[in-house]
Amino acid sequence: MKKVAIFGQAYKNTDRRYFDILIENLNKFNIEIIIEKDFVTILNDLGVQNLNYKTFQQNKDLDSSFDLLFTLGGDGTILNAATLVKDLKIPILGINTGRLGFLATVKKKEIENTIKSLIAKEYTIQERAVLQIASNDPNINFNGINFALNEVTIARKNSTSMIRVEAYLNDEYLTTYWSDGLVVSTPTGSTGYSLSCHGPIIMPESNNFVLTPISPHNLSARPLVVPDQTEIKLKIIGREKEFFLSLDSRVFTAPFEIELTLTKADFAIKIIQLNQQTFIRTLREKLFWGQDKRNYTS
Rank of each mutant, 00 (worst) to 15 (best):
N218S: 15
N218V: 10
L219Y: 03
L219A: 10
S220T: 13
A221Y: 03
V225R: 06
V225Y: 07
P227E: 13
D228V: 02
D228R: 00
T230S: 02
T230G: 06
E231T: 11
E231P: 14
K233T: 08
L234G: 03
L234W: 04
K235H: 00
K235T: 07
I236P: 04
I236N: 01
I237L: 03
I237K: 06
G238R: 07
R239L: 02
R239I: 11
E240T: 07
E240V: 07
K241A: 07
K241W: 08
F243Y: 09
F243Q: 06
L245S: 05
L247Y: 13
L247R: 02
D248Y: 01
D248W: 04
S249I: 09
S249W: 06
R250A: 11
V251C: 05
V251G: 15
T253M: 14
A254W: 02
A254L: 05
P255D: 06
F256C: 08
I258M: 13
I258A: 15
I258H: 08
E259S: 13
L260N: 04
L260W: 03
T263W: 06
K264A: 00
A265I: 03
D266S: 10
F267A: 09
F267R: 03
I269D: 01
K270S: 08
K270H: 14
I272F: 09
I272A: 01
I272V: 14
Q273G: 15
Q277D: 12
Q277R: 14
Q277C: 15
F279C: 10
